[in-house]
């Protein structure tokens, strides 16, 4: 495993822990898009079904279980335990506009027309756009809490680091997966605007506020 991959995974892990901790500590999910969290839970459960068919390594198994468990726990906190604090009036992105294309594209463009492979492909396509409801919510309210910004930065960095990992693997192992690469580039590109605001504002101690 190369350095980009391990830092990418840790960044991903950090992101989901930041979010879970924020909700738990403040007893509130204000500013968090439940819809993005449902999409992420769907991404991890459909991608990691191979847990029951393929053993890769202890690291791989543990991380997969953590991602599935934490994403479901986050949805539980938003939609059940702290439901009263969920800002559903601002979480109005229509997720069927993301789900339907991801399903259709997975059926059309995949490596192998088998059940697990299509679910894996679906999860890759869906992950690339799953943050849109959250970014839409931030743009609608015009601001984000610092902790939400840190969450978004860690989550966005993870796929950017994976791109470096893929470049590294292409050079050193001559391995590449075009579906993951294209989706990963789309995913990272969606964060670019946010990355700019994060670096120019949040890192200088200001709140992330969009220009009116």
């Amino acid at each position: 495993m190369n350095i980009f991959r391990i830092i990418g995974d840790l960044s991903h892990l950090l992101a989901i822990i930041i979010l879970l901790r924020k909700i738990w500590k403040t007893r509130s999910c204000a500013g968090i898009s439940g819809k993005s969290q449902i999409l992420f839970a769907l991404v991890y459960t459909t991608r990691y079904l191979d847990l029951v068919t393929t053993y890769v390594s202890l690291y791989n198994t543990v991380m997969k279980i953590i991602f599935i468990a934490v994403s479901i726990a986050t949805c539980y906190l938003i939609y059940m335990k702290f439901k009263a604090t969920y800002d559903h009036n601002h979480d109005t992105f229509r997720i069927e506009f993301l789900l339907a294309p991801a399903v259709i594209l997975a059926l059309l463009i995949n490596h192998d027309f088998t059940f697990l492979e299509i679910l894996w492909t679906f999860s890759i396509y869906l992950e690339s756009v799953a943050i849109l409801p959250q970014l839409f919510m931030v743009s609608k309210t015009g601001e984000a809490e610092s902790i939400t910004s840190h969450y978004l930065f860690a989550l966005g960095s993870y796929r950017a680091l994976y791109i470096l990992n893929w470049i590294y693997r292409y050079h050193n192992e001559e391995i590449y997966d075009l579906i993951a690469i294209v989706a990963g580039i789309v995913q990272t590109a969606l964060y670019c605007d946010f990355f700019y605001l994060y670096i120019t504002k949040v890192l200088r101690g200001k709140k992330l506020q969009l220009p009116a």
Binding site: T54, V56, N60, K64, D112, Y162, N165, R169, E173
Partner: peptide, 10 residues
């Protein structure tokens, strides 16, 4: 399959 080699990724 084609992506057997990258299955270790998350």
């Amino acid at each position: 399959s084609f992506r057997d080699t990258t299955k270790d990724e998350l």
